[in-house]
Design a protein around this nucleic acid. Sequence first.
DNA 1: AATGAATGAGGTTTCATTCAT
DNA 2: AATGAATGAAACCTCATTCAT
Lengths: 205, 205, 205, 205
Amino acid sequence: MPRSTNQTRPAPRKAPKQARSLETVAVIVEAAARILEERGHDGFSTNAVAERAGVSVGSLYQYFPSKDALIGALVVRETSLLVEDTKKACAQSTGQAALSAFIAACIAHQFRRPQLARLLDYEEARLPFDADTQRVGRQIHELVIEMLAKSDLPALEDPDLTARETVAIIKGIIDAAGQHGDADTDALAGRVQRAAFGYLAIGPG
Amino acid sequence: MPRSTNQTRPAPRKAPKQARSLETVAVIVEAAARILEERGHDGFSTNAVAERAGVSVGSLYQYFPSKDALIGALVVRETSLLVEDTKKACAQSTGQAALSAFIAACIAHQFRRPQLARLLDYEEARLPFDADTQRVGRQIHELVIEMLAKSDLPALEDPDLTARETVAIIKGIIDAAGQHGDADTDALAGRVQRAAFGYLAIGPG
Amino acid sequence: MPRSTNQTRPAPRKAPKQARSLETVAVIVEAAARILEERGHDGFSTNAVAERAGVSVGSLYQYFPSKDALIGALVVRETSLLVEDTKKACAQSTGQAALSAFIAACIAHQFRRPQLARLLDYEEARLPFDADTQRVGRQIHELVIEMLAKSDLPALEDPDLTARETVAIIKGIIDAAGQHGDADTDALAGRVQRAAFGYLAIGPG
Amino acid sequence: MPRSTNQTRPAPRKAPKQARSLETVAVIVEAAARILEERGHDGFSTNAVAERAGVSVGSLYQYFPSKDALIGALVVRETSLLVEDTKKACAQSTGQAALSAFIAACIAHQFRRPQLARLLDYEEARLPFDADTQRVGRQIHELVIEMLAKSDLPALEDPDLTARETVAIIKGIIDAAGQHGDADTDALAGRVQRAAFGYLAIGPG
DNA sequence: AATGAATGAGGTTTCATTCAT
DNA sequence: AATGAATGAAACCTCATTCAT
């Protein structure tokens, strides 16, 4: 039997319903995050997620048409936070300042939930996401291109490639640090900057 | 997907004593590589591998005590090639030359079979390998530490961390290039060097 | 034959909450009984049980976490009937009357489904059951100790051993009769009493 | 392929060959006993037996046409020892003396290898043995009939049934004692006699 | 005779997904 | 809308038995 029967509800009828749905969706997505963190990709099952979320599998499938769609939603949720911070970083006046802020955002993102971040990177690479999900993923790419175009940075032959590889460097180091359990984020930021700026052929300083 | 036990002994269960066996083992491992490339982690099943190898599942399990052991053997096979090249790189007289050679080796390794390399990186991180398998993985780490200790490079506070992150940078860029299908390995080598040397605070030169 | 793990939790995995479930559980257990009777231990497979029960394997595993758990449930179901009758037997005022009633109960139990009774004895000895299941098995033992302590019977040095062996004698003869197809339960009861009372050093009377 | 090819048979040449074969057979049967004791019915596999015996599976199948035939041979080997002792017991002049000697023989038999004895009882009941194997099993039955016919014991209405049940009683108690680890065989013998003689309606003494 | 690599049917168990209630 | 029982394809792995060497 459902959590609460939900019948009568006059005047402001639909708003609350939506609110409830939104909350249910959020609960499910967070449960998915926990299960993924705790059990890894192979231990991640829709039944486990539903149980952890305190809803029935049926409800889960009411909100997400498939397991991969649920993972996609989780990717979107996690990436969105980083996108927001990346937008702010992009608002910095110089390219170097923007990149530094972006690196700091990536580190913050990674250290919030290291396991989750790592596993979702893998899922993101693996899944043929729908347009929405991919778009969120691409937003960061576009923003980095924008940063790299700022006037204090050298002009680029192939901005697309450079942005892609810059992100790869940054993620690579940060992931390694996260996996190993390093805790000194300031020192890490310095090292990541050295690598990124070196790659971009920006002299130190 | 049924769970595999994860208490892996990747060493072949039985030391093949006949020529036929050795060939069978090789055939199975190569089939595993192909299946992994073509179908990814989720599509990788022991039945599929056996069928592709042209042997029965029973034969597969005669040589590999579990699915994960098979993956372990594949990791060892692939990594061994890179280890050999890394040893040669390490024999260079200067650190910069050694690193450059190492980067070239990584690129060659990655471009041989990009999908495979990427997926095995993931498996390597995921699996709790036994001592033998891990050793192969650690060998590269140790060799990089050795390279970084050469006299032309700045002294390091934490060689372990630096080696780990250097490898992460190199793999990060190369993976990204491999995923995207970039073909110009010389240019790629230059970019990877810029990032690695920048990270190591070695001025361009 | 693939090994089952032997770390049994025979309690149903999920407490059935709907009437349908209860019936499904009962249907599965009865199907298990039939398959065991008809095909023996080696022919007893979860697929066969599910098919005979008219449910899918998945349903079977929804209620029983393993094959052995299912056997455990069957042991409990069958033994429970005998436990009830043994309790009634134990309520008799004299020890001799109680034992005679117990013997009659054992005979009735055995003749209801001779094959099943015999095979479950074997399973009971083989399986490392959890506390609940073992308790059902031990109840009979405790009740027999209680019977043997009644004042009309000789005092015992080692009630535990005596109860164990008394039950062994009774089961031994009855099993032999059941295996051979003897049908005269009254005569059988007499012979069992002679053996049991002889063992207990109670003169014929 | 049959148990042994058995064709030519010249003068002295074959003696060594036969000796070797006999020894191999004995080694395999003993290995079977050990595996059964250590791993139980479900862990008993022909591959394990061959390995333990230090021969190839192929050789095992040269001497035993099937797994069940191997178990049958083990049953015969174990039972034969008891048959010999039962024959000696049967040579006693009185029935009571014969039965007492038989009981002692059964106890000795059971305590030699308790696990093995118990598991083979089960196999014996389960398997549809070939004529040879069954005959060995029946020999004891016949010998007990002979004992029961001796003049100091009451005449029997149904010697077949009585012998069967007498053996069941004796085995029942002794098994129970063996399973529980009781070590005092003299006291056990006394209790078994009380039960058996009680069953046979022979007063104590 | 002996070997042991190979076979493959079959066993146990999981889990994404559906649908009657 | 929600529930959760039910489904069944498919995964991993074993082992009795065969047969080329």
